[in-house]
Design a protein around this nucleic acid. Sequence first.
DNA 1: TCCGTATAAATGCAACTGCATGTATTTAGT
DNA 2: ACTAAATACATGCAGTTGCATTTATACGGA
Lengths: 145, 145
Amino acid sequence: MSGADPSETAIKAWTRLVRAQVMVLGGVEADLKAAGFPPLSWYDVLLELRRAERGLRPMELESRLLLAQHNVSRLIDRLAVNRLVRKRPSANDGRGQIVEITEAGRDLLRRMWPLYRRAIQRHMGSKLDAPDTDRLARLLKKLLA
Amino acid sequence: MSGADPSETAIKAWTRLVRAQVMVLGGVEADLKAAGFPPLSWYDVLLELRRAERGLRPMELESRLLLAQHNVSRLIDRLAVNRLVRKRPSANDGRGQIVEITEAGRDLLRRMWPLYRRAIQRHMGSKLDAPDTDRLARLLKKLLA
DNA sequence: TCCGTATAAATGCAACTGCATGTATTTAGT
DNA sequence: ACTAAATACATGCAGTTGCATTTATACGGA
């Protein structure tokens, strides 16, 4: 299947992917919000920053999170206002910033994860058995390759 | 797998689903936008309206498209401003509206579909062979059940 | 019939996103 | 070294979304 037109099956898969986005991603987001937590985008940024111990440049976050430049800029702003990250000028590039996670940011990650984990289980894990989950993960990997 | 915590595999599947949302859905949206077409949400509304020949109530669109009430209200407004749909009061419910697709709306659907189809193929169909596409469609169906 | 409650849809306001542009700094060509 | 082009990031503005509230109509019980 690599012709110019998608098969009927591909279209089915497409519509279900769209719906899964609304139901599963939307569901997890809603669970987090209902518990008073910030959106997943905050979590994603903080997680990347915790992984990269040395801090990250905004443009690195941009490519890792597949976000537009201006969105990264403002997302970082919001996180900085809430003292979850800290910005400092880059030593070797006067145009650049280095963004680091703060202790409050680490704490938020720690507090969010148990609920996030449960939300993933509720909206995804509980719908598929282990072999199916594995199959789905593999297929999505191919899709993203 | 129905315990309280998701398996590592479930988490893998989750992160890939998130990424697929950005890459695949984002990719298709971008293709349409690049061709000067309105967002997919417009297409979705028009498609539902064309299927339901008699027109639909906003609340019916709401449940079919899994959108929030206020978003449907404004989405319809925008479509109506562009003469793609028409609103008229419901005969048997004074609170209600009936939304119908116009000829211009049908025309937009016809003009968008070839490109939409190609975008689906590009971002999904071409990444998976026929059996894998079928498997993905089945797994997503389970996920949505 | 009248009244309280539920439902359908719209809307004011704040937050967020996209797009284009602006500002500062680095890099490359001469 | 000097200037043009590229890069990193920020920002003004318009469009979109979420949330709470409002308006209008329908319904159900006394």
